[in-house]
Amino acid sequence: MNTDQILAEIREANLSYLMLAQSLIRSDLEQALYRLGVSEDTAQMIAALTPAQMMKIASGNTLLCRFRMDDDLVWGLLTNHGKSAANDAVSRLHASILMAGRHQEAA
């Protein structure tokens, strides 16, 4: 993949992310705050963006979204390939609880 292709992919990802974020925020603010990991002020700004503003923001060469799982414990829980589906579900639930706690700390 060359640089032009990477930049085009970033722009597309940015626009998709902004559209998804705006839709989530408008449909259920509390869920959006948790799922996006953003503050209420940021969510209100995203909700108020016009289509032209979203296109302008998305056209940059910096990826707007980022991985929120920045420690080994959460990654370990998410990638745990347990022997049973029940164990996998418990690991994912545990990871969700950890991330929700971090969202509360950031808010």
Rank of each mutant, 00 (worst) to 15 (best):
A86W: 07
S84H: 06
D71Y: 00
D28Q: 08
E40Q: 12
L18T: 00
I6E: 11
G60D: 06
L64I: 13
G76H: 02
A86Y: 10
S96T: 06
Q5M: 10
N61C: 03
Q44N: 15
G101S: 07
Q5L: 13
N61E: 12
R92S: 02
A47V: 01
A89N: 06
N2R: 13
A107N: 12
Q31F: 12
E30I: 11
L7Y: 09
G101P: 05
L18N: 00
M99L: 05
S16K: 14
C65S: 14
M19D: 14
L33K: 09
D70A: 04
L18F: 04
A89G: 03
N2Y: 10
W75Y: 09
P51V: 11
A8Q: 13
R26F: 04
V74C: 07
M45Q: 15
S59M: 04
A48F: 00
K56G: 08
M19E: 15
A106F: 07
L93S: 07
D72C: 10
N2P: 10
G101I: 01
L98R: 11
M69G: 08
K56F: 12
S16V: 10
T50Q: 06
A86E: 15
T42C: 07
W75K: 11
A85K: 12
I57T: 03
A52F: 06
L15V: 03
L33D: 01
L98G: 02
L63Q: 02
L7N: 13
A86T: 13
N2S: 13
Q31H: 13
R68L: 08
L33C: 02
A48W: 00
A47I: 00
A43V: 00
S16M: 12
N61F: 07
H103T: 15
T42Y: 03
T62S: 09
A95H: 03
M45R: 14
E9F: 09
G60Q: 01
D41W: 08
Q5P: 02
D88E: 08
M19R: 15
R92E: 00
S16P: 03
A89C: 01
L78Y: 04
L73W: 06
M1G: 15
H81N: 15
R68F: 02
A21N: 03
G76D: 04
M54F: 08
D70E: 11
S23F: 04
N87S: 11
G76W: 02
L24Y: 11
T79Y: 03
A86P: 05
E12S: 12
E12T: 11
A43G: 02
L93G: 06
G101T: 01
T62G: 06
D88Q: 08
A89T: 07
Q22L: 00
W75M: 14
L33E: 03
M99P: 07
A13F: 09
E40M: 08
S59P: 01
L29R: 13
R68T: 10
A21R: 07
Y34P: 03
I10R: 04
Q104F: 10
I6Q: 13
S84Y: 06
E40H: 07
A43L: 03
L36M: 04
A21Y: 01
V74Q: 02
M45T: 07
E105S: 12
A100Y: 15
H103N: 11
